[in-house]
C-alpha cells in the first residue's frame, strides 16, 4: 500500500508535506525542522515508538535504508505515530500555538454542532495524553464542551496527537479569542408553544446557577480592585 507511493514520494517531496496532505490529517500543522532536530524535544519518545530512529529518519527525509516491504510499512506507521506524538508537544510551544491559531482562524477544525453556538469554531482536543486511549474530540469554547468530530475519518485519529491541554493553553496565550458568554441562550422544548414544565424548571435552575457564578466573578473582581488600591 504505502511502499510504492511513498517511496516515490520520498524522492519527489518532503515526507511531512505528504503527511499533512493525506486525507484525515487536516488537523495537523507543520512541525518546524528546528523543533524536530532538537533531541531534547524527543525525550522519552524512543520507548514509545517502534523503529524510532528509522521513523525519525523518514520524517526528516533522510531514510536511506534497504528493507523489505513489511518492515517498511511498519516504519511508515511508526513515523506517522511519532509525528503525532511530536505534534502534541510542538503545538504547546509558542510557534506551534501560532500555527494552530492560524488554522483556527481559518476554520480548519470545523464548527460547533450546537445550534445556539452559531457555528462557533472548534479546536481539536484529546481526552488523554496517553496514546491509543481515545480518538480526537472537538472542543468549543463557546459552550465549553467536547463533541465527536463530524466526519468518520477523524474518528481514527488519536487524541494524544493533540493532547488534553492544547486548547486551553491557546486561550491562555490568545485571551482575545475567548467568546463573550454574557448573554447565553438556552433551548427549552415546548409543546404547542407552551414550554415543558420540567425543562422550564431546569432552565430556571440552571440560570440561577449562572447568576451565582456571575456574582462570584464579581466578588473576585472587587477583591482584586480592593487589593490594587
Amino acid at each position: 500500500m504505502d511502499d510504492i507511493s511513498s517511496e516515490s514520494d520520498c524522492t519527489t517531496e518532503y515526507w511531512i508535506d505528504w503527511f499533512l496532505g493525506a486525507q484525515g490529517n487536516e488537523f495537523f500543522c507543520e512541525i518546524d525542522d528546528e523543533f524536530l532536530s532538537d533531541r531534547f524535544n524527543m525525550t522519552g519518545l524512543n520507548s514509545e515508538v517502534q523503529y524510532y530512529q528509522y521513523a525519525m529518519d523518514l520524517i526528516m527525509d533522510s531514510f536511506e535504508h534497504d528493507c523489505d516491504d513489511q518492515t517498511r510499512e511498519q516504519i511508515e506507521r511508526s513515523a506517522r505515530h511519532l509525528y503525532g506524538l511530536i505534534h502534541a508537544r510542538y503545538i504547546l510551544t509558542q510557534r506551534g500555538l501560532q500555527k494552530m491559531f492560524d488554522k483556527y482562524k481559518n476554520g480548519d477544525f470545523g464548527v460547533c454542532p450546537r445550534v445556539l453556538c452559531n457555528r462557533h469554531p472548534v479546536l481539536p482536543v484529546g481526552l488523554s495524553d496517553i496514546p491509543h486511549s481515545a480518538p480526537v474530540k472537538m472542543f468549543c469554547m463557546k459552550c465549553e464542551d467536547v463533541y465527536n468530530p463530524p466526519l468518520a475519518r477523524f474518528a481514527t485519529i488519536d487524541g494524544a496527537y493533540f493532547g488534553t491541554s492544547f486548547p486551553f493553553l491557546l486561550f491562555q496565550a490568545y485571551p482575545h479569542l475567548i467568546p463573550n458568554k454574557n448573554a447565553p441562550e438556552r433551548f427549552v422544548p415546548a409543546i404547542f408553544g407552551f414550554k415543558i414544565h420540567e425543562h422550564a424548571k431546569l432552565a430556571r435552575w440552571q440560570n440561577t446557577r449562572r447568576l451565582e457564578l456571575m456574582q462570584r466573578l464579581q466578588s473576585y473582581e472587587d477583591e482584586e480592585n480592593g487589593r490594587n488600591k
Partner: peptide, 8 residues
C-alpha cells in the same frame, strides 16, 4: 479563560 458555561 476559566469555566463559564458549566451551568449549561
Amino acid at each position: 479563560s476559566g469555566p463559564r458555561m458549566r451551568w449549561l
